[in-house]
Simulated scan of single mutants.
Amino acid sequence: MAKSVRRKLRQMERVRIRSAEERVQQILDERTERLAARRDAASAPAEALPRALVCGAGRERFGIPVDGVAEVLPSQNCTPVPGGPPALIGLLGRSGRLVSVIDLGLALGLEPSSADIENRHFVLLRREQPQVALRVERAYTVADILPLTGEEAAGFRNDAVTGYGKIQSGRADQDETLSLLDIDRLLRPFLPSSSLSGV
Rank of each mutant, 00 (worst) to 15 (best):
A70T: 11
P65C: 08
C78P: 05
L125A: 06
S43H: 08
G93P: 09
R127P: 00
Q129I: 05
E71N: 10
N119Q: 14
R51C: 02
G105A: 14
L125I: 06
D40H: 10
L92M: 15
R39M: 11
V69R: 09
R97K: 14
A44S: 12
V72R: 02
G56R: 11
V132M: 00
S113Y: 02
F122A: 04
C55H: 00
R126V: 01
G109V: 05
G56V: 14
S100Q: 13
S19W: 15
G105Y: 04
L125Y: 04
Q25D: 11
P112A: 08
F122M: 07
L73S: 10
I17A: 14
Q25E: 14
S114V: 03
A52P: 08
I64F: 00
D29T: 15
L73G: 01
V101E: 02
G63T: 04
L125T: 09
E21P: 05
A52K: 05
G84Q: 11
F122S: 04
Q26E: 10
L49E: 13
G84N: 07
P80D: 06
G58E: 06
V101N: 12
G63P: 10
L125P: 06
P50I: 06
V54Y: 06
E33R: 11
A44I: 05
V24P: 06
G96Y: 07
E30T: 03
E71P: 11
R16V: 13
R31A: 08
V54P: 04
L98V: 10
I64V: 14
T79V: 09
R120L: 02
L53N: 01
C78V: 15
V15E: 09
R38A: 03
D67K: 11
P65M: 06
I89Q: 07
P74Q: 13
Q129L: 09
L53T: 03
L35D: 09
P85L: 11
V69Y: 12
V123R: 10
G90Q: 09
Q129S: 15
Q76A: 13
G63Y: 01
I17N: 09
